[in-house]
Nucleic acid binder design. Structure first.
Length: 347
DNA sequence: CAACCGTGGCG
DNA sequence: TCGCCAAGGTT
């Protein structure tokens, strides 16, 4: 059997990961959300910190959204953290704090789609659900020579059916872990290790030298460019932050006062913009320096970011009523996007 | 459905 | 340098 070969491979090659030593649905849930589009090595530290601070669903539900976001700082895709928090509150309110044990109810939780619901159902409750993630798409497409696009609705159906068939009577929690781990370690996206692969004889891609053509994916859309001018407005002990709103990147996170432009602007022109002038009316300032543009790449946007540091005397700091004046020591309490965090670490 | 949503690493 | 990829989900 094909699946028993994969399971056998797994027993000899699996990594010892923290969320594999438990069947606690809460712990598995946290790990699965963190692992979405994120590599294992990145997740491990975040996972430990998160579980330490919020050991149970109730602890998470009672935390503030800002505290939860703070634990997510640097991990990316921050809606995952907000959804996690909402779902925890929902479980406390509707299920008395007990994680639901049916696939349908798991799937209803915010931030949980078909993959994650299947993974939790299988890992925590032993339910017979094939979890199909990027690893599984890759393994199945190569193994069986499926050229359908893995990110199209049609392709997803095909691969789900294939995965369901391949699982057959295997233990769901072992089978799912096995094929995912197999994709992560052996049947990798780049330079798969076909030489010592136990599935060589049955693998379409290996037999036809098509490893690099599979899986197939729809191309990504073009990136848009945005130009951010961040003002690090500071006195001896304080600096200014503002909270981002909804409907854009980094929702609810904190950033410096921002001037956004459609194109690149020189500092000499920037200080004549309306925003700049309205900002510093009646305030004595000293422009300290301007950092060279750095391009911060998001999944769909290139952010061209420049930081301009502006020194202001202590008494003038409270004239900026629309911003939050923060003690330099307390920046750690605010969830910051990566570029802001990095800037503060240097400043 | 297609666009949107972070960040780090690799070849 | 740069495009792609990594245990996807929501609107």
């Amino acid at each position: 059997m094909l699946n028993s070969k994969i399971i056998n491979w797994y027993e000899f090659n699996k990594r010892d990961l923290p969320w594999r030593n438990t069947t606690n649905p809460y712990n598995i849930w946290i790990s699965e959300i963190m692992l979405q589009q994120t590599q294992v090595v990145t997740v491990i530290d975040y996972y430990h910190r998160f579980i330490n601070s919020f050991p149970t669903i109730k602890d998470l539900a009672l935390a503030s959204e800002q505290d939860v976001l703070n634990h997510w700082q640097g991990l990316g895709y921050y809606s995952r953290a907000r959804n996690l928090h909402q779902a925890a509150k929902f479980i406390v309110d509707n299920y008395n704090g007990v994680f639901p044990n049916s696939f349908d109810n798991i799937l209803k939780l915010k931030g949980i789609g078909v993959y994650t619901a299947s993974a939790i159902a299988a890992f925590a409750f032993g339910l017979s659900k094939a979890a199909v993630d990027g690893n599984v798409y890759r393994v199945l497409s190569r193994l069986f020579g499926v050229y359908e696009l893995t990110n199209s609705p049609k392709g997803k159906k095909t691969f789900q059916l294939l995965a369901d068939e391949l699982m057959a009577n295997a233990e769901p929690h072992i089978y799912n872990q096995a094929i995912i781990e197999f994709g992560a370690l052996q049947c990798t996206a780049k330079k798969p290790m076909c030489e010592d692969c136990p599935l060589q004889a049955q693998c379409f891609a290996y037999l036809n030298k098509e490893q690099n053509s599979l899986p197939t994916k729809k191309k990504k859309i073009k990136l848009t460019n945005r130009y951010f001018y961040y003002l690090y407005i500071f006195s001896e002990e304080h600096f200014l932050l503002q909270q981002r709103g909804d409907g854009d990147i980094w929702r609810k996170m904190f950033e410096f006062p921002l001037i956004e432009a459609n194109n690149r602007i020189e500092l000499v022109d920037l200080i004549h913009t309306e925003t700049w002038r309205s900002l510093f009316v009646d305030v004595k300032i000293e422009v300290k320096d301007q950092l060279a543009t750095k391009v911060h790449k998001l999944s769909h946007q290139n952010l061209h970011i420049e930081f301009i540091s502006v020194k202001v005397d202590r008494d003038s700091m409270n004239k900026f009523s629309s911003f939050i004046c923060i003690d330099k020591e307390k920046a750690i309490n605010f969830p910051l996007p990566k570029p802001i965090e990095s800037y503060l670490a240097r400043a």
